[in-house]
Design a protein around this nucleic acid. Structure first.
Lengths: 231, 231
DNA sequence: TAAATTCGTTCACTTAAGTTAAGAAATGAT
DNA sequence: ATCATTTCTTAACTTAAGTGAACGAATTTA
């Protein structure tokens, strides 16, 4: 029985990119009673922190068919491409990177319960950067048209978006300040404190540019820290 | 006649901090016909880019008595202080800085038509940083209570705030990306391109930490650039 | 106006990051 | 399982930023 669920889970999260309706996110065995949580539940849990949804509203949201399962390495958005999609990560990790002088420069990662709206969605220009999946990822993909439909039906969605972007802006500013006021080594130590998972799940060379340095420097810096802690 | 206006202008912008009602922002002599613009006009012009205001709405806004004239060097917000005020600069320049190990670290400047909401306004904690005036500055000072009053009367204000913070977030992200992907020298050259006024109006040592380096390094870097362009 | 403080630059020296190259380890593809 | 590719680390060398100190210039303060 338990095996069944877990097998189905493994299968489900591998479902190909388009159109994913019901994804089991976790299976808990509590006193021989199995409970499971779908990606829908996860999204609703997140939203409930901001607004409360009626069943009608939940259904309206689900009818938009926004859940997608994407394989590691998939490129969601390419430089030079126009797109209206924005993303919200339910499980996994996506990254944003530029290619400058032939080199990848990763500037941001988005993991569970984090959303991103590519710049090109706002200004309707071609994207300056790429977005790709660091891991197999489950996310919602929404575009402004859906937003408009939803917002006119349920204005509170728009309110939530406002609150969300204010929240994001505040976080972003604190992050930027921290970045400006610290050395690469400091930044690495901060990351270790604040997002230790990232250091585990993301390749070093992507972390390096995220920290504003070269991969070799990150390697050296890590060795230096290790050396210090040994003595 | 013309002299009258200009004298009044100079006098007006010097009015002490609290309660400023009518500030002449500019005087134009066009074919002997003098026209002048008040700070109110400037604010309304700015707002009109986002929403259109009726006379009623303008008056509601003015009745909140939010215009302030602040002298260079004045500290608007101190570390450790709680505050509910957010600022919108009509004329002049304010800066945000931390004091870390006894050293000032400037992380942001806000000039004409730029607004800032200190982090402590959101989370109701003590401020982690200072805000002070780089120049004699005219700004609006608003708090959420005013916002609530205005927003319930005129919901479109709230819409504007949402759009504004989304816009800000987008800009902020691009800025952060640019910062991460460039060297201090690049950052300085970018600043020279994008905000040349800042380099003129802001002391070098404040610019330095804004660029993520020490004042001596900025000096050296400038000399280096000059040297390059000479040859 | 004079004295005091702050600011910007320069210099010599130290420390750390960028660069180039090479090899080991891990990962992915066939 | 093997081969090819990508990723990570190390090393030697170069370049640029951090540090501490000194000095003139500019700004504030009394």
């Amino acid at each position: 029985m338990k095996g069944d669920f877990q097998a189905r889970f493994r299968e489900n999260v591998r479902v190909k990119f388009p159109r994913v309706t019901r994804l089991v996110a976790s299976v808990t065995d509590y006193n021989n009673i199995l409970t499971y949580k779908t990606m829908h539940d996860i999204l609703f849990d997140f939203i409930s922190k901001y607004i409360s949804l009626t069943e009608d509203e939940k259904n309206a949201l689900l009818s938009l068919d926004i859940f997608r399962s994407v394989k590691k390495g998939t490129i969601l958005l390419k430089e030079g491409q126009k797109s209206q999609d924005d993303y919200f990560v339910l499980k996994g990790c996506i990254r944003k990177y530029y290619i400058i002088d032939g080199e990848e420069k990763t500037t941001a990662f988005f993991t569970e319960m984090e959303g991103m709206t590519p710049h090109c969605v706002k200004n309707n220009n071609k994207s300056e950067y790429f977005v790709s999946c660091v891991e197999d990822t489950i996310l919602t993909v929404a575009n402004p048209d859906m937003g408009v439909e939803l917002n006119t039906k349920f204005p509170k969605f728009q309110l939530m978006c406002g609150v969300l972007s204010e929240e994001l802006l505040a976080k972003q500013q604190i992050n930027f300040d921290e970045f400006k006021t610290s050395s690469p080594e400091q930044r690495y130590l901060n990351l270790l404190q604040n997002r230790p998972d990232l250091i585990q799940r993301v390749p070093q060379h992507q972390l390096a540019s995220f920290l504003g340095i070269k991969p070799q420097s990150l390697s050296r810096l890590r060795a230096r820290i290790l050396e210090k802690s040994k003595v």
